[in-house]
Design a protein around this nucleic acid. Structure first.
Lengths: 227, 227
DNA sequence: ATTTTTTTGTGTATAAAATACATAAATCAC
DNA sequence: GTGATTTATGTATTTTATACACAAAAAAAT
């Protein structure tokens, strides 16, 4: 018979943040301990015996970065034999989306530093974290076209141009402003508020808010979101 | 500091088979050992220290059912604290598709019996395997609409009516035969063969074959499969 | 205070895609 | 050979996607 299994289980988190100016960023920590000491890495760590996987992710994020997540979803499980140089570690990766006000971050226990990195300027990172990150970016790009998760990256109230810019950034192509607006409005998941915002020059923009309740209602009726 | 982690890692497989007559079936094994002894369950088991996750799935399937898989994809990782009554076990679930000639199955090591069950007639099954199975069914239903994986469930050469029936079965709704055919033909991933097949009464049907090479070519060019 | 620049907001015409629908051809069962 | 069964096929209509330009509101420049 075979020996007792000797595999550890960890979680890793790809936390995305977005601002219209900076584009899409991801949260990285600087490792305090070996291996990859002082290298940048995705936040994460070993799962405790008595906590669920999502709880482990939330705990690690709290411990390492002090960020609170409003959208969290399992991404993929990475289990290659040699992905950790010390032991066999199977890592269940999650990705999360945070609103711009989460850009206040603080390193603590396991991390000597925490920072947002634009996804176009990712440094060398530990383990197979590049692979995890790329998987997450592709998932996000795909998912925003058929689930309204883009709103999780914007402020609660936002001008239409922010939404449009988010989509052009994430999809990496130009979008016709009028057609895009028509499409979103037709989906009927945005409430137009009686507030305006003006940033810099130009006509002030009306603010919108995502109506999640209405979205869930429509989803239950079988209406599909699609960009 | 916390104690050493005591979590086991397993894999489970949801293997789908399909025949035009029986519809969609899933492969179950009868457990030889506790817990859930003599209960039906998804094939699977603990991962060995020196094998990758996919290798573990293939090995367990070979050991328990003697089925060979032509399409295998990671589904989701189930890690709730109490999902196994003995220890903490995190299970990485996969789903696979097999062609009808794989319906020759044999129980061996860990299983006292193996059987195909129609997805509409699933018995009580062990652990959280119902949850895993439902996740797999939903994934399959979703995926066949945007990736040409349905062909993995059919014989290499098949009449158009088989494909049509597969889609009506999986999607659970009627499909207009002419429009469906037009759509598939337009995708340009099927080769029409110079062979006919006649089953029972009626005009003999032309056989088709999925051209995977052409599909990958088109995919690289950005053409999307969509039903 | 007038002009220029910048950003928001909006409609229509055209092209493409999805849908609805019926009849003839080939074989089998009787 | 008559009727039943299954395959094969085209067109008209509706819906959806795309392309495209100018006015309104405010700030910045003069």
């Amino acid at each position: 018979m075979g020996a007792i299994q000797n595999i550890k289980v960890s979680v890793d988190a790809v936390v995305f943040g977005y601002t219209p100016d900076e584009g899409l960023s991801v949260l990285l920590i600087k490792r305090k301990s070996t291996p990859f000491k002082n290298s940048w890495a995705l936040p994460g760590g070993l799962v405790k015996d008595n906590e669920n996987l999502e709880e482990a992710v939330q705990r690690e994020l709290k411990e390492e970065t002090n960020v609170s997540i409003n959208y969290l979803e399992q991404l993929y499980t990475f289990g290659d034999v040699a992905r950790d140089p010390r032991n066999r570690v199977v890592s269940v990766a999650y990705y999360g989306l945070v609103k711009p006000d989460a850009f206040e971050i603080n390193a603590s226990t396991d991390a000597s530093d925490v920072a947002w990195y634009n996804v176009k300027e990712i440094p060398d990172i530990a383990f197979d974290h590049h692979k995890i990150l790329n998987t997450a970016i592709n998932r996000l790009k795909g998912k925003i076209t058929y689930e309204p998760i883009g709103f999780e990256l914007l402020d609660k109230k936002f001008p239409f141009s922010d939404l449009e810019k988010l989509y052009t950034t994430l999809l990496g192509r130009e979008i016709d402003r009028r057609n895009f607006r028509k499409k979103i409005v037709r989906l009927n998941v945005l409430d137009e508020l009686d507030e305006k915002v003006s940033k810099g020059s130009g006509r002030p923009a009306n603010l919108f808010q995502f109506n999640q309740k209405r979205y869930f209602q429509l989803k239950k009726e079988g209406i599909v979101f699609e960009i």
